[in-house]
Design a binder for these strands. Structure first.
Lengths: 132, 132
DNA sequence: TATATTAATGTTATATTATTACACAGTGTT
DNA sequence: AACACTGTGTAATAATATAACATTAATATA
């Protein structure tokens, strides 16, 4: 569950854009899209993105350098994320599986070490791309 | 187990450098290090890196844009990777856990979909950093 | 051997992604 | 008021990665 954060103007503009997008968005494509709304510089975008990631409203898809809104109420503020990525159409979906999160949150390595955070990216073909 | 690949000159130079490094290396730091050996341009580095990743001799740490040699005989040619990353000292270790790989290789999402590939990055504090 | 094919190289230029540095404004606290 | 903290605006630049094109090396196979 997300703690409610009041977003600032820039954060809100950028979150809305990402939230409405069916696909992950890249920083500079966000920039081009919000220039008419007064956000002119890369840094303004990156600052908002950093904050939004920090508070868990969006996630970064590391292998794609792109950002997606969080639609998973069980992900604890950007600390435990899992995605499926279609290698053909690039569709990205956040995976919300209680089993998976439990398994990973409790995973201990050889040295018995547990981790405070993880990011998992699965790759394959989505249903559509798999059947054509 | 790795299929044996004969590396080309550039690939060998770059693999040796990464293999000897205790830390993941970034593309441009690789470039600076191999310029004395005749590799002058970024593209020469990236091409070798791409190939080395493809054949599983190295892995890319996506969250760091850095490359590490594979020391895990059970990772099937870059298809299934897991790392632990220390958020203080940036030490990166490849995790080789039969249980983990089995769990992830067999993971099915809500739609029953299985994936051909994954990359998992755990974050936390390494032993050293945790105790000081 | 000749020739076709594929993979790798070399080089220049450029695209894309991200940060540094500095000045300033708003808000809340002591 | 003085201070700390967070966010903003702007310009410049650093860091990461790819496009395009010409050439060479290695492999395969007729």
């Amino acid at each position: 569950m997300h703690k409610e954060h009041i977003l600032t103007k820039n954060q809100q503009i950028i979150f809305d854009l990402i939230d409405k997008s069916p696909e992950p968005l890249k920083a500079y494509s966000i920039l081009f899209n919000v220039q008419k709304r007064g956000i002119k510089a890369p840094l303004q975008v990156y600052r908002a993105l950093d904050k939004l990631v920090e508070i868990g409203k969006i996630h970064k898809i590391e292998s794609r350098n792109a950002f997606i809104a969080c639609h998973n109420s069980s992900c604890q503020v950007a600390k435990a994320t899992a995605f499926s990525i279609c290698e053909i159409c690039e569709k990205v979906t956040e995976i919300s599986s209680a089993g998976l999160s439990k398994y990973l949150a409790n995973f201990k390595d050889k040295d018995g070490m547990k981790y405070s955070k993880y990011n998992l990216e699965f790759f394959g073909l989505c249903k559509k791309c798999n059947t054509r």
